[in-house]
Design a protein around this nucleic acid. Structure first.
Lengths: 196, 196
DNA sequence: GGCTATAAATAACG
DNA sequence: CGTTATTTATAGCC
């Protein structure tokens, strides 16, 4: 070889585990490592089926949190409140029952449990992915395409109901705001709601 | 030396992010990854000078925790200071960033964080409810009507994007199923998706 | 925000 | 619990 230009990148450099001085670096490092930490926590939840809650206060004292199945439920359990059955199993029928009230709490519950369900389906999707990969190694599937044949349809019904309710409330709220504030940006958002 | 025996070690193998079946493996993985998670958290504390609390319930429901400077102090701050801890959980910008990929993990993240966010808003809404009840005792508010004047619009954008993506995927999936199974019930659901 | 080279974490074994 | 081969996470940049 005749010549060699400089390395296109220095790659990762070793840094001492001590307070980062340069605030711009500190900012980006905080963001990246916080993401990494939450991802690790998520993987631990999935791999081992455990409950985790993480609370982080940023350099600017802004709180960030991660929780599975739920930040508060885990913290409550840890702090001694044995309200230990809000979690895991939640049928779409129950979800629909909750939806009928459409109050704040019910709606929040639906979303919490929906998230859990989506996660469970994702997990199953990955398992089926592995199986089909071993079998014929062809059909790529989306995580929620797999389990839909059994209970997925009920899940879809729940999602539909929840989304419909959300849209209704959002439109009402945005309409209220647009009357109060007369902001162009708001109006454009309001009209684009039709695309839902 | 001309001959070469088997590799002295297979080294690290890639494993799917799904519940580990073999309980002996699960146990060791839980220990290792919990240590790794706490170490990462410790590094983040030192590097960025931030406060972190982590609570983990083991597969045997035994609680483990990490905290800097202390678990309780961080949790107290998180649970007891609603003034600054409202939405900082997750900005709509971050949510939209996650959405752009629209892969399983990103979508799941969006829902996890959205749920956290909605919960924070619900909490704040209840507090404001208490205040206004003490003040004039009249205006009943929906949990997400309160904070909408500031950041709610961005939140709505996020919700819209998430729901749109969900709808697209759901329709695609239901369509696939209807072709495969030719089930009348499914078709009726498929058509009703237009109401979203 | 996306890359690339390198440091770290860790799955399978001993 | 220590080793080792790999997979992941990420520091420095554009």
């Amino acid at each position: 070889m005749v010549m060699m230009k400089k390395k296109p990148s220095q790659g990762r450099q070793k840094i001492p585990i001590a307070k980062i001085a340069k605030s711009s670096n500190l900012q980006v490092t905080f963001c990246k490592r916080r993401s990494g930490l939450f991802k690790k926590a998520s993987e631990l939840c999935t791999l081992c089926g455990v409950e985790i809650a993480i609370v982080v206060f940023s350099p600017a004292n802004k709180p960030f949190s991660f929780g599975h199945p739920h930040v508060e439920s885990v913290l409550d359990r840890f702090l001694g409140t044995p309200k230990s059955s809000i979690d895991s199993d939640f049928t779409s029928q129950q979800a629909q029952d909750y939806m009928s009230g459409s109050s704040a709490h019910e709606l929040n519950m639906v979303f919490t449990q929906t998230q859990n369900h989506l996660e469970a389906e994702k997990k199953r999707g990955q398992e089926l992915d592995e199986m089909s990969k071993a079998g014929q190694g062809s059909s790529r599937r989306c995580w929620w395409e797999n389990p839909i044949d059994e209970m997925g349809l009920h899940e879809l019904e729940m999602m539909k109901a929840a989304m419909k309710e959300l849209k209704k409330n959002v439109i009402k709220q945005v309409n209220k705001i647009s009357m109060i504030q007369s902001c162009a940006a708001i109006n454009s958002q309001y009209h684009s709601l039709d695309e839902w």
